[in-house]
Design a protein around this nucleic acid. Structure first.
Lengths: 136, 136
DNA sequence: TATAATAGCTCTAGTCACTATAGCTTCAAG
DNA sequence: CTTGAAGCTATAGTGACTAGAGCTATTATA
């Protein structure tokens, strides 16, 4: 039997976040002690670690909910899980390439040599889109 | 004299977003027509394009506010602008490398070959952190 | 000039995934 | 038995918008 504080320490998920997950129905309402405090078991910890792990990997709570449902239902083929992952992976790749173009742009803008703002390349670049390397 | 709709079209910033920017003080309250509709001039368009541009590059509104202030004050040296940019650039680089580690992890997890969830590598990977390549 | 469609107005609430605060109660250690 | 840490609920705030309701103004066409 774990208190919410211990569950938090063991899982790495903050206490208010655990309560938040309960509130939105991502985890089941916890059992309560006589004094109305939450008490958890090993299974709850497992579920929370799964969630933590998926969040660290950037999955949305919605997708995590779906993954947990798939996990529960041992009969159902896992193509659903694969689809969620594939979608997420392509999303991540998208974000990477957008950020890399951004990086190039920012790199190019940086290291202003002007002394006053009138000559500041940073501000000039931001003001005038036509200097840009790519469309955005 | 531009209506908010035309300002929106020309700048690429959505109408409600323009009103939102006014509300939070990022742009000055617009002049009004006799019928109380917002009317804009060339300078307002310039400022909005600056903002749009900086947002596209991922700057926070707070930083954009600072950049606009620096832009206004033509006397002040632009090291402030350079600092904001440098900070943002390192933030972008951070995000890129985190996403790349993520990508590797997701790639490794993907293409589940199991038929039922008990064998699904995606779900298994999420449940068991010890399979991971890096700490997260 | 009349009318209808489009655009604009304000205000409130919702999004996502938490985080912070206030004011209270319970628990565990000494 | 006391004290301090941990727990409880409920509400509000974050960032950067977005959506909706219910109204008014402008503009294009008949």
């Amino acid at each position: 039997m774990l208190s919410i504080g211990n569950l938090s320490k063991t899982s790495g998920v903050k206490v208010p976040t655990i309560r938040y997950y309960e509130k939105i129905g991502l985890i089941a309402p916890a059992d309560r002690s006589q004094g109305n405090q939450r008490r958890y078991e090993a299974d709850d910890l497992k579920r929370l670690i799964f969630i933590k792990h998926a969040r660290d990997l950037g999955f949305h709570l919605d997708d995590i909910k779906s993954l947990l449902t798939l996990k529960e239902d041992t009969s159902c083929p896992c193509s659903g899980a694969d689809e969620i992952l594939t979608r997420h992976l392509s999303d991540v790749r998208n974000r990477i390439s957008r950020l890399q173009r951004l990086e190039a742009e920012l790199e190019r803008m940086s290291h202003c040599e002007g002394e006053c703002v009138a000559e500041c390349s940073v501000i000039e670049s931001l003001a005038d889109h036509s200097h840009c390397l790519y469309e955005h």
